[in-house]
């Protein structure tokens, strides 16, 4: 039984999945997708793997999955014996899912800004940055309250897939011209995350903490 990840190193969404695979110490096979300039994710071959034409996609024991958030849920559900990355108790499960959805929704404006600046995507860059700032503010407000409670993570007292899902596009936002100056609680949270055992960086996230 092997896990196969359709991957592009520069994708923050693929990075979410690589992070969890690494935290869980899971072996997997990587299939590199020439996302840019090749647009291989829009090729007929790849559309049979994910008809939405998006990466990441994951194959696991006959199961074919798309959407980074869904893949995080699947991996945590299946492989995390400790239950910490996706807590099932009623106080935490809903909150984790809420921030996981936020990562796949509102935070993706930061991804759009990055695609515009680095890879020349045609889109309204001012609107993308403004939406990203609005989303960052919501997460920073939340993490400010968490700091006051003496907590370090988005939900609970252990990092969860909510932290994994939110981390990449907050950390990579500078690539899209979105700075971290206004978000002291996000800076502290990101630093804590980067100091986790088994954390690994990607291009755009400095290796040294």
């Amino acid at each position: 039984m092997t896990i196969k990840l359709y991957d592009y190193s520069l994708s923050g969404s693929c990075y979410k999945v690589r992070l969890l695979l690494h935290f869980l110490d899971l072996h997997y096979e990587k299939q590199q997708i020439d996302f840019y300039p090749g647009r291989q994710h829009k090729s007929l071959d790849f559309l049979q793997i994910n008809p939405l034409g998006q990466i990441p996609a994951l194959e696991d024991d006959g199961l074919q999955l798309r959407d980074a958030q869904a893949i995080l849920c699947h991996l945590a559900n299946k492989y995390d014996g400790s239950g910490r990355w996706l807590p099932r108790d009623e106080r935490h499960f809903g909150a984790v899912m809420m921030w996981v959805m936020f990562a796949g929704g509102e935070l993706m404006s930061a991804s759009a800004a990055r695609l515009h600046d680095a890879l020349g995507y045609k889109l309204d860059i001012n609107a993308a940055r403004a939406s990203a700032h609005a989303a960052f503010r919501i997460l920073d407000d939340h993490m400010t309250l968490r700091e006051i409670e003496g907590a370090k993570w988005i939900v609970g007292d252990h990092p969860t897939i909510a932290d994994i899902a939110c981390f990449p596009y907050v950390a990579l936002s500078g690539d899209g011209g979105i700075g971290h100056e206004d978000y002291p609680a996000l800076r502290n949270w990101m630093r804590n995350f980067r100091r986790l055992p088994r954390f690994h960086a990607m291009s755009g996230v400095p290796e040294y903490v």
Binding site: L10, I33, D34, A118, G174, S203, G204
Partner: peptide, 23 residues
Amino acid sequence: SSTADLIDFQQSIFLQDRVILEN
């Protein structure tokens, strides 16, 4: 190496530098 791998390696290196360059 596949072409996708070669491009991925080169772009990964360049995007590590890009953070420096823009700051």
